[in-house]
Protein backbone atom coordinates (compact mmCIF):
# COMPACT_ATOMS: atom_id res chain seq x y z
CA UNK A 1 0.00 0.00 0.00
CA UNK A 2 2.84 2.38 0.95
CA UNK A 3 4.65 1.49 -2.28
CA UNK A 4 1.51 2.31 -4.27
CA UNK A 5 1.26 5.68 -2.55
CA UNK A 6 4.91 6.43 -3.37
CA UNK A 7 4.38 5.38 -6.99
CA UNK A 8 1.28 7.61 -7.32
CA UNK A 9 3.07 10.57 -5.74
CA UNK A 10 5.99 10.00 -8.11
CA UNK A 11 3.73 10.00 -11.18
CA UNK A 12 2.00 13.22 -10.08
CA UNK A 13 5.34 14.94 -9.40
CA UNK A 14 6.71 13.87 -12.79
CA UNK A 15 3.58 15.16 -14.56
CA UNK A 16 3.85 18.54 -12.83
CA UNK A 17 7.55 18.87 -13.63
CA UNK A 18 7.06 17.94 -17.27
CA UNK A 19 4.22 20.44 -17.69
CA UNK A 20 6.24 23.21 -16.02
CA UNK A 21 9.19 22.60 -18.36
CA UNK A 22 6.92 22.79 -21.39
CA UNK A 23 5.36 26.05 -20.19
CA UNK A 24 8.76 27.49 -19.50
CA UNK A 25 9.92 26.44 -22.96
CA UNK A 26 6.88 28.07 -24.57
CA UNK A 27 7.29 31.27 -22.58
CA UNK A 28 10.88 31.79 -23.68
CA UNK A 29 10.58 30.42 -27.20
CA UNK A 30 10.67 33.84 -28.88
CA UNK A 31 13.36 35.51 -26.82
CA UNK A 32 16.47 33.70 -27.93
CA UNK A 33 18.37 34.04 -31.16
CA UNK A 34 17.26 31.47 -33.75
CA UNK A 35 19.32 28.32 -34.08
CA UNK A 36 21.16 27.63 -37.31
CA UNK A 37 18.49 25.05 -38.26
CA UNK A 38 15.69 27.54 -37.64
CA UNK A 39 17.42 30.19 -39.71
CA UNK A 40 17.90 27.80 -42.61
CA UNK A 41 14.33 26.59 -42.32
CA UNK A 42 12.88 30.13 -42.21
CA UNK A 43 14.75 31.49 -45.21
CA UNK A 44 12.56 31.16 -48.30
CA UNK A 45 13.84 28.45 -50.61
CA UNK A 46 13.75 30.79 -53.61
CA UNK A 47 15.89 33.45 -51.96
CA UNK A 48 18.06 34.89 -54.67
CA UNK A 49 19.52 38.12 -53.27
CA UNK A 50 21.72 38.49 -56.30
CA UNK A 51 18.61 39.14 -58.41
CA UNK A 52 17.23 41.88 -56.15
CA UNK A 53 17.25 45.43 -57.48
CA UNK A 54 18.49 48.43 -55.54
CA UNK A 55 15.77 51.05 -55.78
CA UNK A 56 15.19 54.48 -54.28
CA UNK A 57 13.17 52.63 -51.64
CA UNK A 58 16.25 50.57 -50.74
CA UNK A 59 18.36 53.68 -50.26
CA UNK A 60 15.64 55.37 -48.22
CA UNK A 61 15.29 52.28 -46.03
CA UNK A 62 19.04 52.22 -45.44
CA UNK A 63 19.03 55.93 -44.59
CA UNK A 64 16.06 55.58 -42.24
CA UNK A 65 17.15 52.53 -40.26
CA UNK A 66 20.73 51.44 -40.93
CA UNK A 67 22.46 54.83 -40.76
CA UNK A 68 21.81 55.03 -37.02
CA UNK A 69 24.80 52.71 -36.57
CA UNK A 70 26.36 52.26 -40.00
CA UNK A 71 26.44 55.97 -40.91
CA UNK A 72 24.89 57.90 -43.79
CA UNK A 73 27.60 56.73 -46.18
CA UNK A 74 27.81 53.23 -44.70
CA UNK A 75 31.26 53.76 -43.22
CA UNK A 76 30.33 52.32 -39.84
CA UNK A 77 30.35 55.77 -38.24
CA UNK A 78 26.69 56.29 -37.33
CA UNK A 79 25.66 58.25 -34.28
CA UNK A 80 25.56 55.12 -32.13
CA UNK A 81 28.92 53.80 -33.30
CA UNK A 82 31.14 55.17 -30.57
CA UNK A 83 28.82 53.83 -27.86
CA UNK A 84 28.85 50.23 -29.03
CA UNK A 85 31.16 47.58 -27.63
CA UNK A 86 31.64 46.16 -31.13
CA UNK A 87 32.00 48.80 -33.90
CA UNK A 88 29.30 48.62 -36.59
CA UNK A 89 30.42 47.11 -39.89
CA UNK A 90 31.92 49.51 -42.41
CA UNK A 91 29.92 48.69 -45.53
CA UNK A 92 32.40 50.41 -47.83
CA UNK A 93 35.23 47.98 -46.98
CA UNK A 94 35.38 44.96 -49.20
CA UNK A 95 37.98 43.09 -47.17
CA UNK A 96 35.44 41.51 -44.81
CA UNK A 97 32.28 41.72 -46.86
CA UNK A 98 33.68 39.70 -49.75
CA UNK A 99 34.19 36.83 -47.30
CA UNK A 100 30.40 36.78 -46.61
CA UNK A 101 27.84 35.30 -48.95
CA UNK A 102 24.68 37.19 -49.85
CA UNK A 103 22.72 34.63 -47.83
CA UNK A 104 24.83 35.36 -44.75
CA UNK A 105 24.19 39.10 -45.11
CA UNK A 106 20.49 38.38 -45.57
CA UNK A 107 20.46 36.30 -42.38
CA UNK A 108 22.34 38.95 -40.40
CA UNK A 109 19.78 41.59 -41.37
CA UNK A 110 16.73 39.41 -40.92
CA UNK A 111 17.68 37.54 -37.75
CA UNK A 112 20.34 39.79 -36.23
CA UNK A 113 24.09 39.54 -35.74
CA UNK A 114 23.97 36.64 -33.28
CA UNK A 115 22.28 34.40 -35.84
CA UNK A 116 25.44 34.45 -37.96
CA UNK A 117 27.86 34.35 -35.05
CA UNK A 118 28.49 38.07 -35.05
CA UNK A 119 27.79 40.87 -32.55
CA UNK A 120 24.38 41.08 -30.83
CA UNK A 121 24.46 44.88 -31.30
CA UNK A 122 22.95 44.24 -34.74
CA UNK A 123 19.26 43.62 -34.03
CA UNK A 124 16.92 41.44 -36.08
CA UNK A 125 14.93 43.37 -38.69
CA UNK A 126 12.80 40.46 -39.88
CA UNK A 127 9.65 41.73 -38.14
CA UNK A 128 10.13 45.21 -39.60
CA UNK A 129 11.36 44.69 -43.17
CA UNK A 130 10.06 42.14 -45.65
CA UNK A 131 12.33 39.68 -47.46
CA UNK A 132 12.32 41.67 -50.71
CA UNK A 133 13.61 44.83 -49.11
CA UNK A 134 16.20 42.85 -47.11
CA UNK A 135 17.41 41.26 -50.34
CA UNK A 136 17.71 44.66 -51.96
CA UNK A 137 19.61 45.93 -48.88
CA UNK A 138 22.09 43.08 -49.40
CA UNK A 139 22.62 44.32 -52.96
CA UNK A 140 22.96 47.90 -51.72
CA UNK A 141 25.70 46.77 -49.34
CA UNK A 142 27.37 45.12 -52.33
CA UNK A 143 27.19 48.48 -54.10
CA UNK A 144 28.73 50.24 -51.13
CA UNK A 145 31.61 47.80 -50.80
CA UNK A 146 31.90 47.38 -54.56
CA UNK A 147 32.48 43.75 -53.89
CA UNK A 148 30.95 40.33 -54.34
CA UNK A 149 31.18 37.17 -52.31
CA UNK A 150 34.40 35.36 -53.19
Amino acid sequence: MTNRKHLLAGIILLTILTTACEQSKQATSTVRPPTKEEVTKTIPQNTQPELAQVTEGTRQTYQWYCTQCHGIKGKGDGINAKFLTVPPRNHTKAQYLETRTDEQLFQAIKFGGLSVGRAPCMPAWGETLDDDIIQSLVQYIRELCQCEAL
Binding site: V31, R32, N80, P120, A124
Partner: peptide, 14 residues
Amino acid sequence: YQFERTFGCISCHQ
Protein backbone atom coordinates in the same frame (compact mmCIF):
# COMPACT_ATOMS: atom_id res chain seq x y z
CA TYR B 1 20.87 40.20 -20.92
CA GLN B 2 17.98 40.02 -23.40
CA PHE B 3 17.84 43.83 -23.56
CA GLU B 4 21.46 43.89 -24.65
CA ARG B 5 21.98 40.65 -26.54
CA THR B 6 18.73 39.11 -27.73
CA PHE B 7 17.02 42.30 -28.85
CA GLY B 8 20.01 44.65 -29.11
CA CYS B 9 18.11 47.57 -27.50
CA ILE B 10 21.35 48.89 -25.99
CA SER B 11 22.64 49.75 -29.47
CA CYS B 12 20.24 52.70 -29.72
CA HIS B 13 19.05 53.39 -26.17
CA GLN B 14 21.06 54.55 -23.20
